[in-house]
């Protein structure tokens, strides 16, 4: 059997390790954009719930995109 069964993906070493970076990006995306959405909702006087849900969806999409670009390849 070959020794190198699990080759590390080249040059995308992340400091936290892959799992930590995935969770970090998701928290940053969903939390950060959720907070921005909540602020926008308060500021524009929208009915409650719309801004934060939109923000969380956008943040999740952005975080997933970033994860696939940075870590997935």
């Amino acid at each position: 059997m070959a020794d190198n069964l699990h080759p590390d993906p080249p040059d995308n070493r992340v400091p936290e390790g892959t799992a930590g970076a995935v969770v970090g990006y998701l928290i940053a995306g969903i939390g950060g954009w959720g907070f921005l959405g909540w602020v926008a909702e308060r500021w524009l006087g929208l009915p409650s719930g719309i801004g934060i849900v939109t923000g969380m969806m956008m943040g999740a999409a952005g975080a997933l995109y970033l994860i696939m670009k940075r870590l997935g390849a």
């Binding site: 970076a21 940053a28 954009w33």
Partner: peptide, 13 residues
């Protein structure tokens, strides 16, 4: 969309 996420990840998290 991405710059705030990267900022939070790299400089806050």
């Amino acid at each position: 969309l991405l710059v705030p996420i990267e900022f939070l990840q790299n400089f806050v998290n």
